[in-house]
Nucleic acid binder design. Structure first.
Lengths: 209, 209
DNA sequence: ATGCAAGTGGCAGTCAACTGCCTCTTGGTA
DNA sequence: TACCAAGAGGCAGTTGACTGCCACTTGCAT
């Protein structure tokens, strides 16, 4: 899904943007989330000015880099999941794929977080698919009926945030995914309070991302 | 619980530190999480150098400011909770107090997060009390038996992270607290994967906080 | 193949977090 | 009360994110 601005990019510019994102992931992985943008630009073989032209600040860059990683791992996972007989297992495997990537590239995640990015946006492009999988699981009674689509990005955001309470490369987050899945079960369902909108009007001031 | 360094502070220095924290909370609330440290120092009536002498960087300052806020609201909540007949309700009310504060002072929370602080540490001082309350709830069978003390700070961290997916001043987090509490119920308990240690060895490099 | 809009990137500059240095002030103890 | 370690804070400097300016290059539509 190309945005308006992406649609207009010249091929060399698009290639550069792609390279910058990939470099960001590699440099963050090597040098940690505090890696300098100079280093990323150099690694990508472009000038720092080009990096800033494409990604207005570190938050946008790090989030885009994270999105690139998630896209690579979640797209095939979703394809698989849509064919799965058991919709709960299917949903589980998509979450698993996203979390595994997040844990593996936790430095990129940390860079995005530290720059103030709204992490849950990173799975925004898969909102529709997650919603579909959720609805299927609800239809066969594997997930409580009062779940709404907005719940899924939030559950992902919660799981992401766990990584800073443990060795981020570990799979300790699985314990809490299990806990949350128990909460999603129709069996234990205390009626949920109303859902509030996902991120309201753009925040005041000139915030990055 | 004064640390070694706090124990040695001269009374005027302690008063200044206190003032700086309170100023940080006020300035963040007014000017947002990107408020400058200059402004905070000025608001506290101290020089910038004094602010940095006491709090080596923005992450430490923001986290300490958040801890001050949490301390003010959680201490009385815990006192009440320890007297409560229903240990699950008691636990709930402590979490409620902490989350209400976090939502109210979300700018301070955001400043800490953006500076790279490990947010779950902010409830570290109440670890013991939370553990006690959890154990009580387990003893009367209101909470699944395989919960461990480390789970509670992590649940708090997950709830904190929700605030960036909604109007942070709203109480939309209650929906997910409810969801998690369902997951904590002994009824729905799928056996949980092992717990991994809370934040392993101090992170490599010279990270703040 | 050629013209131009789109893209590139060096350089100098701003801004905020943070540090070193050094002198002046002050709480609390002998 | 007099001393001194502890604290305060001004100032100049460093670093990294980010911007404006501008001359140079290059896809690509005609």
């Amino acid at each position: 899904m190309a945005t308006d601005s992406e649609r207009l990019l010249r091929t060399d510019a698009a290639r550069n943007a792609e390279r910058i994102l990939r470099s960001a992931r590699e440099v963050f992985a090597e040098s940690g989330p505090d890696a300098q943008l100079d280093e990323i630009a150099q690694h990508a073989g472009v000038g720092i000015r080009t990096l800033f032209r494409r990604f207005p600040n570190k938050a946008v860059l790090a989030k885009a880099a994270l999105e690139q990683g998630i896209a690579e791992c979640i797209a095939p996972a979703i394809e698989q999941a849509l064919l799965d007989d058991d919709p709960l297992l299917a949903l589980n495997s998509v979450i698993d794929a996203a979390m595994s990537l997040a844990a593996r590239e936790h430095n990129t995640l940390a860079a995005a977080r530290n720059a103030g990015a709204v992490i849950s946006d990173a799975i925004g492009p898969y909102y529709a698919s997650l919603t579909l999988l959720t609805r299927r699981a609800q239809e066969v009674g594997r997930i409580r009926a009062d779940l709404v689509p907005d719940d899924m990005p939030r559950i992902m955001a919660m799981l992401f945030s766990l990584l800073w309470t443990m060795d981020p490369a570990s799979d300790g987050w699985r314990r809490y995914l299990s806990l949350i899945l128990d909460g999603l079960s129709p069996a234990a369902a205390t009626p949920l309070p109303e859902s509030v909108p996902l991120r309201p009007s753009p925040r005041p001031g000139n915030w990055p991302i």
